[in-house]
Design a binder for these strands. Structure first.
Lengths: 199, 199
DNA sequence: CTTAACTGACTGAATGGTCATTCACCGTGC
DNA sequence: GCACGGTGAATGACCATTCAGTCAGTTAAG
């Protein structure tokens, strides 16, 4: 009796926030900018979110969970580390291409926001990373990936590499083929992670 | 007649800004926080910098140039792509370890600040990246590195990977060995970039 | 069917607090 | 005395947040 109509407005506000935060950055963006973009009054935002910071928090929460869920599903459908990694990153590329503004907000604001909502953002991000560490470690223990490097390090490397790749794609307003670059990146990593023949 | 005595104060302010921005983030930090940390009056900052934003800009400028100069020097002293890359990253690790707060500000604020001082920050960063692209492309043309991947993509990948690695080291207050992780990372990349035997 | 209360989502002008920036005024050295 | 680096209280903007009021709809009564 309330959820049905309100959820529409809450989502309108979230979508507007993504757009505005992507364009100006969280700190420069005004709450009234978000309100205008969403087509609601300034005050309405406070019926759905406790504060400007809470708006950003809500944005992270809903979307990161979606991404994490997706990655979680990959391991079930693929068995080799190589095909899992390949699937994770190609899903990520699809996400970035279909929602570039959201991708921009998640990657850019996550860094700065660590400063004011530490535990929270770090936890969501940590969960994402942990899934990748598991995939790597699993691949190592099956002998599919070299064992002389730390799974944690590899996960960070790969995440950092793909994160930078997508961010620069988004910021440059896609003047090149992200999918192709992603494939190249994956090839390099997979070749670099082959078990040493001496093992 | 002014530079000699003032440069001391200007540097005090810059160093204080690094400390404060690293701890709270640029937007949350107050100009008066920087003044207190530097041991000067609020107004004094405006004798050396036109605005709060200009302070951040000055910070980028001086330090990025230093980094770029360092990278530029590497190519002269090393001839193979592998040893150049190895040297660039080990210099970078030294930098991060000796000035973690500065490293944090440069990497975190560079992203968000792209929003309000676009061309400027992007140019400095672009110059840095271009040097790496050159090293890669040169290695490819000599047959030291595989040619079936774009030099631009490889440069971004490597930068992203090392950037993420150092950032997470800085943020986690160094609970692990950055130098070791960096070496592992480099090994993976170099193995992954070996020319295909079929070539 | 009409009118009268009532509800609660929504509105946006007003409030209050928070700084970046300024500038009238020191004190020290020449 | 004056020139100048330095000072820090005062100023003025700028917003996040609030809240008194509007309005569309819903029920209740006559």
């Amino acid at each position: 009796m309330e959820r049905s109509r309100t959820s529409d407005k809450r989502n309108r506000i979230l979508r507007a926030a993504v757009k505005v935060f992507a364009a100006k950055g969280f700190y420069v963006a005004r709450v009234s900018d978000v309100a205008r973009e969403a087509g609601v009054a300034d005050g309405t935002i406070y019926l759905y979110f406790a504060s400007k910071g809470d708006l950003l928090r809500g944005l992270f929460e809903e979307n990161m969970e979606r991404l994490i869920e997706q990655v979680r599903g990959v391991s079930a459908k693929h068995d080799s580390a190589a095909s899992r990694l390949s699937q994770i990153w190609s899903d990520y590329v699809v996400f970035v291409q279909s929602e570039p503004e959201l991708a921009e907000v998640l990657t850019v604001e996550l860094r700065e926001s660590g400063k004011f909502m530490n535990e929270f953002a770090a936890d969501l991000f940590g969960a994402f990373l942990r899934l990748i560490v598991e995939v790597i470690a699993d691949g190592q223990s099956r002998g599919e990936l070299r064992r002389d490097v730390s799974a944690r390090t590899v996960a960070r490397l790969m995440f950092g590499a793909f994160d930078e790749l997508s961010l620069s794609w988004v910021m440059s307003k896609n003047k090149w083929d992200l999918e192709r670059s992603g494939k190249e990146a994956l090839t390099i990593f997979l070749d670099g992670l082959r078990p040493k023949t001496s093992e």
